[in-house]
Design a protein around this nucleic acid. Sequence first.
DNA 1: AAGGATATTAAAAGTATATTAAAAGAGGAT
DNA 2: ATCCTCTTTTAATATACTTTTAATATCCTT
Lengths: 226, 226
Amino acid sequence: MKILVIEDELQVSSFIKQGLEEQSFEVEVAYDGNIGERLALSRDYDVILLDIVIPGINGFDLCNIIKKEKPGTPILMLTTLSTTADKVTGFNAGADDYLPKPFEFEELIARIKALARRSTMNPASGTLLRFHDMKLDLEKKIAWREEKAIKLSAKEFSLLEFFMRHPEKVISRAELAEKIWNIKFETGTNVVEVYINMLRNKIDRDFHQKYIQTRIGLGYVLTNEI
Amino acid sequence: MKILVIEDELQVSSFIKQGLEEQSFEVEVAYDGNIGERLALSRDYDVILLDIVIPGINGFDLCNIIKKEKPGTPILMLTTLSTTADKVTGFNAGADDYLPKPFEFEELIARIKALARRSTMNPASGTLLRFHDMKLDLEKKIAWREEKAIKLSAKEFSLLEFFMRHPEKVISRAELAEKIWNIKFETGTNVVEVYINMLRNKIDRDFHQKYIQTRIGLGYVLTNEI
DNA sequence: AAGGATATTAAAAGTATATTAAAAGAGGAT
DNA sequence: ATCCTCTTTTAATATACTTTTAATATCCTT
């Protein structure tokens, strides 16, 4: 697990570094805001510890910048300022947690682990939907089945996303028409059928198990049975 | 500051060792590739000087091995070979700098100091961004793909840098327009498309795997999938 | 086998993106 | 200052991709 520590006070930073390394974290230390920024933006860390008072740039501002570029990376703010007003500013800047100095080392470890667990369990707040050997990457807008990547158009993508959010549920044409195409009443169109067909060609055609199945008179299901 | 010298020619290595120790560096010398490898991997050095022609293992290969295990340690390649082709191979092997023999001692010192400074200031990222077989040298403002050096204009460079700092993420035209061209609202321009096209001609045209891909309706990704 | 439901295909209509060339701008050399 | 070269931007055109429609084929139920 990789941790970036942005902290100028040598005493504090080396204490943290040493302690975390004993717990077998990989630790990198930036001694000022600018270097911290470069590191934070150019690499992926599991957690960033950020002191508010650092040379080069304000910790709040840096927090904002990092969160803009890497919204998935949890940030734990460290500081001697501990008034409620500061806490509020910290959270507004996008910090995920807040630890006033001086702190118990146990406390620090616990919070880091909590943050990391939160973010790895929920990679950038759920960017992956899964259904058996199929994945849908909501960030990259790409689907995978077994190890094959599948490019989807926008409509195909929302259709598949809808199915993957409602696995094993029969969904009527009317509901698909409304949710995906925003068609609220019966028009003569057959877009749904056409798109189901396109989706099948992409995700089912080359595989034995067909995930998208027809329930005549009812609609379609995403299932791995039958 | 600790330096590891991997060099079999006794004349050269003792000359370097003596000179560096006068400047109060700590110096260790390995006289063949295998010992060099063991030392490099088991201890932390501030800089490694590595001759290309050494017994036991090829300098390029050793460079690769060290960079894999200790990507943060700067490596300065020493060699009598000084053709561009060798330089290219050296950089591809991950070397941070390159010094053809014979060299001025002053020059050596200067480069060691530069490397050490660079790596302590920015222990993680150095000046190289990597994406599979592509590298971007942030100092020299040059890109490499496989063995080919690629000259980039300023805008092309920042565009590629942005992609390489956000690999596998879909980036919208709007975001590129804002981050690279500082266009904050919709103007009628198509600079983004034009520059994407120029960049593709430089980094993708001659290769089978196209790194810059379009996600219609969304933007572009730097990816090696699909 | 008939009739309704679903699937498939192809073409048309609509958009987004790619490419090219020329114009405008910027910097260096003489 | 002028020329030259390289970069950046604009604009026009070409190509590619997506979405929708519509016509036809196939399947399923009775």
